[in-house]
Amino acid sequence: MSTPKAVVEVVAADLQGPGVVACPNPKQDLWSNHPKVYIDVVKNGEGKCPYCGTVYRLKAGEKVHAHH
């Protein structure tokens, strides 16, 4: 298993829609490197970008109000 390129810790306020984050995110140096994708971080507590390998991890203890 390869080491992730980067791990970005996110909080509930960073989430969009049904508990997703966009990658690339505006804080990344090369934000226009690949098409924008939305990564679910609520289901498993983290998600990995299929393009650049950045891992987005939900900060421990964050409460997410998900629609079920």
Rank of each mutant, 00 (worst) to 15 (best):
M1D: 12
S2E: 13
S2G: 07
S2M: 13
T3F: 09
T3G: 05
T3K: 14
P4A: 10
K5N: 14
K5P: 04
K5I: 15
A6L: 13
V7E: 10
V8T: 05
E9W: 08
E9Q: 09
V10W: 09
V10S: 05
V10P: 00
V10G: 02
V11K: 15
V11L: 10
V11M: 12
A12F: 06
A13Y: 07
A13L: 13
A13K: 12
D14C: 11
L15A: 02
L15K: 02
L15D: 00
Q16M: 11
Q16N: 10
Q16F: 08
Q16A: 09
G17T: 05
G17R: 08
G19I: 05
G19L: 04
G19V: 03
V20M: 11
V20L: 13
V21E: 03
V21L: 01
V21K: 01
A22C: 11
A22Q: 11
C23M: 01
P24T: 00
P24Y: 01
P24N: 07
P26E: 03
K27T: 14
K27C: 05
D29Q: 13
L30F: 13
L30V: 11
W31F: 13
W31E: 08
W31A: 12
S32N: 15
S32L: 14
S32G: 09
S32A: 14
S32H: 14
N33Q: 14
P35M: 10
P35L: 08
K36Q: 09
K36V: 11
K36I: 10
K36R: 15
V37H: 02
V37Y: 04
V37E: 07
Y38D: 05
Y38H: 09
Y38A: 07
I39C: 02
I39D: 00
D40G: 05
V41S: 07
V42D: 07
V42P: 00
K43G: 07
N44R: 15
N44Q: 13
N44K: 15
N44P: 03
G45R: 03
E46I: 06
E46S: 15
E46Y: 14
G47I: 09
G47Q: 07
K48G: 02
K48F: 06
Y51S: 00
Y51F: 12
Y51T: 01
Y51N: 03
C52F: 06
C52L: 10
C52R: 04
G53W: 00
Y56V: 02
Y56W: 11
Y56D: 01
R57E: 09
L58S: 04
L58T: 00
K59N: 08
K59R: 14
K59P: 06
A60I: 08
A60G: 07
G61C: 08
G61M: 10
G61E: 11
E62C: 06
E62A: 02
E62N: 06
K63Q: 12
K63N: 12
V64L: 15
H65K: 15
H65A: 10
A66D: 09
H67E: 14
H67P: 01
H67V: 13
H67Y: 13
